[in-house]
Design a protein around this nucleic acid. Structure first.
Lengths: 149, 149
DNA sequence: ATACTTGCAAATGATTTGCCAGTGT
DNA sequence: ACACTGGCAAATCATTTGCAAGTAT
């Protein structure tokens, strides 16, 4: 049981860069592992492990689901991948990169991602009231969006 | 797929009061249903469905897990029960009552519950910055607690 | 009487594990 | 070579569903 959220994230943008970072950490670059990275880059949004194994619905070769999970875990433990949760439903995976804060509406279930500085005031108010440091990039901040409020 | 979080919660404290509220809503009071209520009251904290079915480890008679889930869903849809999530792991159920805001530490995985007014400043800052209304009684606010920060 | 519930079995969805053959370095 | 990784099957965990038999009102 790891604490992937707290793993320092790398700033990874493309396939080659990610593969490079991977080898730099002494990890092997297998075909299946490269496919996971390609899928995350191609998707451009957080995706389920099953979508990766399914080759993003035909865009990429399909691969074994168990291996996908294992590779996601490996990549995550090395800071190359992160995963997050949007309410109920399966975990979602993305290449590590700039971590934006997530806001999930518990009425319409849509979510938005904002730059961290947007929530500076929130973080400050929370720290003043409770001493906690808020982080909304793994588990989103939940509430009602302006339309549903 | 319901949106239980938004169901107006009743203020239910004890077994008899809950049974009363249940009948007032035209629901039948079966033995299995009463056991669910008794388990929630006896536990005094959010519990997993399996704990209820297991009779809280011997304190109460055990019952069928599928029925427990069905009854929790029924009770929740009538505002008598609510469920929440504390990070990864199974959903937790509690009698509806005063809803306190939950703060989960993503490092040590402990959580605290605070009175809603403690977070008034946080809510205000969030509304100012994004127009969202924060709610942390179903999905907790996540971050680092003072010890882990 | 009859619509609602139960209990058991089986299905589902997400994720993990065991194992042995295959492969990256 | 040799440790690491892949693929496949099977296990696990949380939850849901089908259905015949039982029960609350």
């Amino acid at each position: 049981m790891s604490v992937p959220v707290l793993t320092p994230a790398l700033q990874v943008e493309g396939v080659e860069e990610a593969c490079e970072a991977l080898r730099a950490r002494g990890l092997r670059l297998s075909a299946a592992r490269r496919l996971v990275i390609e899928a995350l880059v191609a998707a451009g949004r957080p995706v389920r492990a099953e979508e990766i194994a399914g080759g993003l619905g035909g865009r990429l070769p399909r691969s074994d689901l168990a291996s996908v999970y294992r590779n996601l875990e490996t990549l995550e433990s090395h800071g190359l991948v992160r995963h997050l949760h949007l309410g109920h439903g399966p975990g979602l995976y993305a290449l590590a990169g700039e971590e934006r804060e997530l806001l999930l509406c518990e009425s319409c279930f849509r979510y938005i991602a904002v730059e961290p500085d947007v929530l500076d005031g929130v973080r400050e108010a929370l720290a003043d009231a409770t001493g906690w440091q808020a982080r909304f990039s793994h588990f989103p901040l939940t509430g009602l969006c302006p339309e549903c409020g």
